[in-house]
Design a binder for these strands. Structure first.
Lengths: 215, 215
DNA sequence: CCCCAACCTTACTGGCGAGTAAGGTTACGT
DNA sequence: ACGTAACCTTACTCGCCAGTAAGGTTGGGG
């Protein structure tokens, strides 16, 4: 009848379309529950194409992981690189992160919310991308120590702070979903506000005293 | 040969054994990849028993969810309840949380690291348990506002802080796995240190100025 | 002693989904 | 024009796993 046959498309383009579709489905269903048929259908293609271009379900997932990890890290570095003080770099990095997640929610889910271990290769790639993001943040925190205090930076305290920041940011991702109006700028602002002062406390060694109002 | 026949055991006990096993497997493999056979085997029992006692795979998962959510919340409330100031209550709550996660890592994974949506009932239960934990933390934060400032507490700022805290704590769970020596007390201390001062900033309304060293 | 209820098993079915075999169609270079 | 390589499909196989049917064992109350 209506001769809308499926458009023929060159391989690199098709690959990206498949990966786009895969990210949506993997994010919705999780790795195991996602079916290659469904991904193929969303990509407007039939299943064997997926296997021809990406080898296997695992290969497809790895391709998603690699592409999105690259994107996020690039965005983060591009934002945090040029700023002048460590504080401003961290701010810019966080803003880039929240912007990225706002625009690519599914990517973040695929990258960071996968508890199970589908296969060694996937576990490794997942670990790698997380490590790289953490390393980036840890670097910023370290830079801050170096600049302000000088010596005696406590070994893993920078890492501790980085974990706290990344975890907070991840969780705030959910908060954003509940408050669609909030712009990434405001969230960044509040988080910086909340965390910047305290970071110094931790990095200078703990000084917590049982506090204010003990009746 | 050796006549170690499987012990006969009353129903309520067996149910708990099955749930224990299920939590381990669900945490390791995720909901979909976990097989009921494997759970049954780990529980020292055959598959039909699982269906007899827990109805279905979904029912089994729900039972895990309910039992562990209950445990965690109870531990949290028991710790946070008796302390005197909001600050001490929060500290005690966090300590209880880190202690719980140290002792029941799998439970936390099952409760909080499930991105996919296996079924409406599971999604609902998962959402419920998270909401309750968040509500508990939000309550502590609110109480703090009320005590110190008085009026004009910003609507969702308490919620914002709660999300930050829970996310940070969750992420620090991974950090703990990397540093097996660290006792929950030290982690709690550092987190309080890092976050307590800044919380006030956020709750009093944002006051962030582009900072210190702008060359 | 003997029976019934609670406990437990082996041995199936049925469907879903990863991966594949075999071949059809269009663009493009010559 | 026409062949060939790139693009794409229909129609399977095969294994895994949720869920079930049918029946075996044991202890404790009459």
């Amino acid at each position: 009848m209506s001769d809308i046959r499926r458009q023929r498309v060159p391989r690199p383009v098709r690959e990206q379309q498949i990966i786009d579709a895969a990210i949506r489905i993997f994010a919705r269903r999780g790795y195991h529950a996602a079916s290659v048929d469904e991904i193929a259908e969303l990509a407007g293609i039939s299943k064997p194409m997926v296997y021809l271009y990406l080898d296997s379900k695992e290969g497809l997932f790895l391709a998603c992981l690699r592409r999105e990890a690259e994107r996020l890290l690039t965005a983060f570095r591009a934002a945090a690189g040029p700023a002048h003080s460590p504080e401003l770099r961290l701010r810019a990095g966080l803003l880039a992160f929240f912007t990225f997640v706002t625009e690519h929610r599914d990517s973040w889910v695929v990258l960071h919310r996968q508890s199970s271990e589908p296969s060694p290769a996937i576990t490794a790639e997942l670990a790698r991308s997380r490590r790289e993001l953490l390393a980036e943040v840890t670097g910023l925190v370290r830079a801050d120590i170096a600049e302000s205090d000088g010596p005696a930076c406590p070994e893993d305290d920078a890492e501790f702070v980085a974990y706290t920041l990344v975890g907070a940011a991840d969780s705030l991702t959910d908060w954003m979903a509940l408050h669609p109006g909030e712009p990434p700028e405001r969230i960044t602002l509040r988080l910086m506000n909340m965390v910047w002062v305290g970071m110094r406390n931790v990095l200078d060694g703990e000084v917590w005293t049982t506090p204010s109002g003990t009746p």
